Simulated assay, not measured.
Amino acid sequence: MTTEHTIAELDDADTALAYDAIRALRPHLTSVDQYVDVVRAQRKEGYRIVASFDASGQVVAAAGFRHMTNLYAGSHIYIDDMTTLPSARKQGHAGALLKWVDEEARRLGCTSVQLDSATHRHDAHRLYLNSGYVIPAFHFSRSL
């Protein structure tokens, strides 16, 4: 198991490096260009990406997040996307990303880190619960 992880925030020029990792979670993104365009639009809303690299320098895990303030949670970081390539799972990459996000949230004066996770992602749920996350609510959605 890897004990050291190289974690870095990706700027606009490096966004494409996270495509393979993000696509593991978001398979509807069918090209690097489409992904970069979507992220570029989201960056205008404060979206940021942090990545975990393997020994060869490939991004194997990524977290997309934004700093938000709302009535129910106050100032917090919301993780939109948290994903690891299947070949790199169970090596500590996602845990290292969660720690990085926690540190960034503290730096920004946030009171919490929030995220949603699909109901079938049991391994991710185990990671979140083992990392101190709780399930305070159900998330409801309605397609229009």
Rank of each mutant, 00 (worst) to 15 (best):
H5N: 03
H5V: 04
I7S: 06
I7N: 05
E9Q: 06
E9R: 07
D11L: 12
A13K: 15
A16Q: 13
A16F: 07
A21W: 07
I22F: 10
I22Q: 00
I22Y: 07
R23D: 00
R23T: 00
H28I: 07
L29I: 07
T30M: 06
T30S: 09
V32Q: 04
V32F: 08
V32A: 10
V36P: 01
D37L: 11
V39M: 09
V39H: 10
A41L: 08
R43L: 07
E45C: 01
E45I: 01
R48Q: 14
R48P: 02
V50K: 01
A51F: 15
D54I: 09
D54P: 02
Q58A: 08
V59Y: 02
V59I: 11
F65R: 02
H67F: 10
M68P: 12
N70V: 12
S75Q: 15
H76G: 12
H76R: 08
H76P: 11
D80W: 02
D81R: 01
M82C: 14
T83K: 06
T84D: 04
T84E: 05
S87I: 05
A88P: 12
Q91S: 09
Q91A: 09
G92K: 03
G92L: 07
G95F: 13
L97A: 12
L98V: 05
K99A: 11
W100Y: 15
D102S: 15
D102Y: 15
D102M: 15
C110K: 03
S112E: 08
S112V: 12
L115S: 06
S117R: 11
T119A: 10
T119N: 15
A124I: 04
R126L: 06
N130V: 10
Y133A: 07
P136D: 09
A137I: 00
S141T: 14
S141G: 05
